[in-house]
């Protein structure tokens, strides 16, 4: 099988990835990769659970139901073509996340309040 078939990493931007999108389509039998997000319970966020291959979005949702919710793990499913996900670069993690680390006042425990105070 040819070597150009390569999955896109999360965050690889179309056209900039090691394998171009054309290479993936060149194999007419290969289905694109989808990332699956499942809401396991009403009131919770959708959480990334894994990925799968499907020809289209409809099929991806049905596959996700069969693959990732075989034990009733979900009430709602999102699928996103993996190529559409843009991720931050870990090398820039310092500049992206460190500033927020300073902002301790964003965290509730920053505030030293009297113990008598409740319901806050």
């Amino acid at each position: 099988m040819n070597n150009l078939l390569r999955k896109f990493y999360y965050g690889d931007i179309l056209g900039e990835a090691p394998a171009s999108s054309g290479a993936q389509q060149s194999d007419r039998q290969t289905w694109p990769l989808w990332e699956v997000f499942v809401r396991s319970k009403q009131g919770l966020d959708h959480k990334h659970v894994g990925s799968l291959h499907a020809a289209d979005a409809k099929m991806a949702i049905e596959n996700a139901r069969d693959v990732y919710t075989r034990r009733n793990e979900g009430v709602s499913i999102w699928v996103v073509e993996s190529t559409q996900i843009h991720a931050s670069n870990p090398d820039e993690a310092a500049s992206l996340y460190d500033p927020a680390n300073d902002k301790v006042y964003r965290h509730p425990t920053f505030y030293d309040l009297p113990d008598e105070l409740s319901h806050i």
Partner: peptide
């Protein structure tokens, strides 16, 4: 394994 840069087809 696919996250390491190899496709399932390969």
């Amino acid at each position: 394994a696919e996250t390491l840069g190899i496709s399932r087809d390969e």
